[in-house]
Simulated assay, not measured.
Amino acid sequence: MPHPPHQSLQAAAVQSLQARPAAVPKPRVPAREEDGPWHAEAVCRRDEAGLFFAPSKEPTAARLAREEAAKRVCARCPVMVACREHALLQPEPYGVWGGLTAAERRVVLGRRRRRAAELLPGAGTPPIAAAG
Rank of each mutant, 00 (worst) to 15 (best):
P4G: 13
L89I: 05
K57R: 12
Q10R: 03
M80V: 04
P21L: 02
G50I: 03
E104D: 12
V96M: 08
P27S: 09
S8D: 02
G95A: 02
D47R: 10
L51D: 01
K71E: 09
F52R: 01
A102M: 07
L9K: 11
G122L: 12
M1C: 14
L120Q: 15
P78L: 06
G124Y: 10
Q90H: 11
G122P: 07
L119N: 11
R114D: 14
L100F: 00
R46W: 06
E92T: 01
L9E: 04
A82I: 00
P37I: 15
P93V: 14
H39M: 12
A117R: 14
E68S: 07
V43W: 00
A22Y: 08
P126L: 06
L9Q: 04
A70H: 02
A131F: 08
A75T: 07
E85K: 15
V14R: 09
V79I: 04
A42N: 07
M1V: 04
L89G: 13
L120K: 13
P91T: 13
S16T: 14
A117F: 01
H86M: 03
R66M: 07
A49G: 07
A23H: 14
R32L: 14
A123D: 13
E67C: 02
R115G: 03
E104Q: 06
R28H: 00
V108S: 01
C77Y: 02
A123R: 00
E48Y: 11
D47Y: 04
E33G: 12
R63E: 14
A23S: 15
P4T: 06
G122K: 12
E85N: 15
G99L: 06
L88F: 11
A70S: 05
P27G: 11
Y94I: 00
A54P: 00
R111P: 07
R63T: 15
E92H: 01
L64W: 15
E58L: 12
C83W: 06
P55C: 05
P121W: 10
H86C: 06
V73P: 03
C83V: 00
G50H: 05
G110C: 02
V14N: 13
G36T: 12
R112S: 01
E41G: 03
A11I: 08
G124E: 05
V14H: 11
V81L: 12
D47C: 05
L120C: 09
L89Y: 05
P78M: 05
V96D: 00
G132V: 11
G110E: 06
P59A: 05
A31L: 11
A23C: 07
V108D: 10
T60A: 14
Q7G: 07
G124S: 09
A40V: 11
S56T: 13
P4A: 10
G132D: 12
G36M: 02
T125N: 04
L89R: 12
R105C: 07
V43Y: 01
P27E: 04
E104S: 02
A65W: 03
A102G: 09
V108M: 03
G36C: 03
G36P: 08
R105I: 00
E34L: 13
T125H: 10
D47K: 03
P127Q: 05
H6C: 05
S8T: 14
A87T: 10
P27L: 11
A49M: 11
A129L: 13
A70M: 04
P78D: 09
R72Q: 13
P2F: 09
E92K: 01
P55D: 12
